[in-house]
Simulated scan of single mutants.
Amino acid sequence: MSEKPSDDQPSASEIPDDVWEQFARDTARNTSAPKEPSARARMVTERLRQQEARGESPPGWRTGPATMNGRAARRRTLWAFLGVPLAVAVAVVALKPSLLPGDPFGTDESSAAASPLPVETAAPTAAPGASDPETPTLDEPFAGSPALRWVDGEDGIVLPDAKAVGSVPKERVAQALKLTKKLLVGANLDPKAVRGARPEVALSVLDPKQPELLDELDTALRSPSREHDPVTLFSRFRPDEVRPAGDVIKTRGHMTFKKGSHGGVAVRADYTFVYPLVRADGPPDVTRTIVRRVIDVELADPAQYRVTAGRLLLVEYDQEIGNSSCDVHDGYLHPEFSPGGPTGTAPTGPATDPYDRSRDIDRDDSDACGTVTRT
Rank of each mutant, 00 (worst) to 15 (best):
K250W: 06
D247L: 02
L179I: 03
D218W: 02
G264L: 01
L217S: 06
V158P: 09
D207Y: 10
V173E: 01
S223V: 08
L203C: 05
N188V: 00
P160Q: 10
T180A: 07
G264K: 00
V185R: 12
R172D: 01
P169G: 05
S223C: 05
P191C: 05
P199S: 08
P169N: 10
T219E: 15
Q210L: 12
F237Y: 14
R222Q: 14
N188L: 03
L189Y: 07
L184P: 04
G253S: 06
I157M: 15
R243F: 01
G153Q: 13
P169D: 09
L221A: 08
P230S: 08
R198I: 02
A187R: 03
L189I: 10
V158E: 15
D155S: 13
E171C: 00
A174M: 04
V231M: 06
G246L: 04
T256H: 10
L177G: 03
K170P: 01
P224D: 09
P230D: 05
R252I: 00
S223Q: 15
K192M: 13
K259H: 14
R236E: 06
K250F: 07
K258E: 15
L189E: 08
G166N: 05
R238N: 14
V194F: 09
V173N: 01
S225K: 11
L214V: 04
T251E: 03
L206D: 02
D240C: 05
E200I: 10
E171R: 00
K163E: 14
E200T: 13
P244S: 07
L179Q: 05
L213N: 08
F234S: 06
V205W: 02
A176L: 03
K192A: 15
P208V: 04
P211Y: 08
D229G: 08
H228C: 01
G253W: 00
A176D: 04
G153P: 08
D215Y: 04
D218H: 07
K163M: 12
S223D: 14
